[in-house]
Nucleic acid binder design. Sequence first.
RNA 1: CGGGGCGUAGCGCAGUCUGGUAGCGCACCUGCCUUGGGCGCAGGGGGUCGGAGGUUCAAAUCCUCUCGCCCCGACCA
Length: 582
Amino acid sequence: MRWSQLFIPTLRETPSDAEVPSHQLLLRAGYIRPLASGIYSYLFLGQRSLLKITAIVREEMDRIAQEFYLPALHPDTLWRESGRWDAMGETMFRLQDRGKRWLCLGMTHEEIMTDLARHEVRSYQQLPQIWYQIQNKFRDEPRPKGGLLRTRQFTMKDSYSFDLDEEGLRQSYQKHYETYCRIFERCGIEYVTVEAHSGSMGGSRSHEFMVLSETGEDRVVRCAACGYAANMEKAVSKLAPVQDVEAGPPEKFATPGQRTIEDLAAFTELPPTRLLKTLVYQAGEDTVLVLLRGDHQVNESKLADLFGELALRPAHPEEIQQALGASAGSLGPVAVQGRRILADQALEGRRDLVCGANEDDFHLRHVTPGRDFSAEFHDLRAVQSGDLCPQCSSPMEVRGAIEMGHVFQLGKRYSEKMGASVLNRDGKETTLWMGSYGIGMERILAGVIEQRHDRDGIVLPPAIAPFSLVVVPVNSGDAGQMSVAEQIYQQAKGDGFDVLLDDRKERPGVKFKDADLIGIPFRVTVGRKVTSGLVELAVRSTKETSDVKITEVNEFLRAAWSKNSAAAARRSKNEQAIGKRS
RNA sequence: CGGGGCGUAGCGCAGUCUGGUAGCGCACCUGCCUUGGGCGCAGGGGGUCGGAGGUUCAAAUCCUCUCGCCCCGACCA
């Protein structure tokens, strides 16, 4: 295509309300434009790149599943059946039709798929089934952010598996896991897979596919040595043992104004590992104590798991005062009666610790768990960088990440509630085992850009770039250059490349800047040397350039292409090997 | 929902404190010039100053209300 006829509105300056790199670059490169908070129009380049991603996803999914296309507008009835009409709260977009019937915009499609399955699938002989679609999802997010990273309307590849039993589900899950690996590899993403928190429904197996990026909202814990990887919500760690000495009975001492662990460590000249941190939570109607080692933070998802469906929140200052008679900063578990006390495992077997005395400005020393108070021990702490791997005891790291895909074993959660069952071999009604699997299409694009950009712009892998090649005649007034550019353009097009001819009457600097900005992987520059039969081939990712004979351009392109794709694939393979749990 | 910031030309901003002709850079249009990294010269078009109400002889500027966007937090099947 000819640039002069296309709509590629690049911006020289960064729009002021874009913060993260992918958002800034998508705007500057003319891929997207905002319509409202968390709602974007995809312009020519953005749509073209998304179509390439879609094509890859579709090709890989078609190997294991059948493509459907379901409505985005759903009647309330199905969502009431699953119980999610109420559970989704304000995140669900709702509306009424002229007959005052309630509808919603689909946030996901478990209900619709399950409805199809229960009506049409009657026999175990029809199983397994895997159905997918690539479709819009609508979520009224409390806070859209980061351009395409968290939006209110986005495109998701979502699939659903239906099996007769748990073993079948395991296989459908495995198929998806492998398919997702292939998809992300082909897209040229460096990703990791992590064990994910399965939420309050409990028990189910779940993995997330993550792009490592500090702009991400998620945190993942990784062990470089053995490949252990988990979402922060779920990650566990071992601790180096701490040597304590036997100590006498607890002894109260004054600690005027010492409110934080930091204060207290300085005041007592003890390391934070010798201090005991007391947090107070409200779990439903109950006030509970949560104990951690001074240098640890609580992991609220682990804590929430202990309370099932009960709503959990930090207690308010008045509630703390009422429960313990002191305010945060002087709290402790000693002599507390009638309250549930939960302690992190790091405190089990410890002796001679310091904790609050439940009297403002006083603490206790020589406190020994088990002797001076009793508690239930659970894994409650958030893993921190440097903690030891639960599998191999090597130090682990915590990194930011963007979730691009999620595979989830649902089990019978929906099929039971909605009555999706088949007759098994024995003629008995059997509830279906379901899985659900999602990929955020825009997040692939945004995630890759977070990962692959430089000061000049976007650096897309060939597989998902809107064009693979741009041909730039340096002087559009030079007939010789223009005709060679035209020739190379036609030739590359004939050879199957997605090629863009920059035939604009612009100065060379403008064309180079734009080509770099929009992230086209290869560029052929037709300049002065054309008179000696030479043009220049530039690789966007490495900035390497080389002079090439006009007659050999296509050969070079093919070589550069396969080299680039191979390098991307290799990178992903490594990452995946690291990410996979052994 | 709590905290913070910002709405002035397509984009980036100044002007607001201290009321008095609405500005700058880039982009855009025309012409000339130039052609290997956002060139140069000349001329030109483009504004309900987010919106409503109020104070005032006079409001982008002061007051009240309101809408929108971004960031932090809460939240996020």
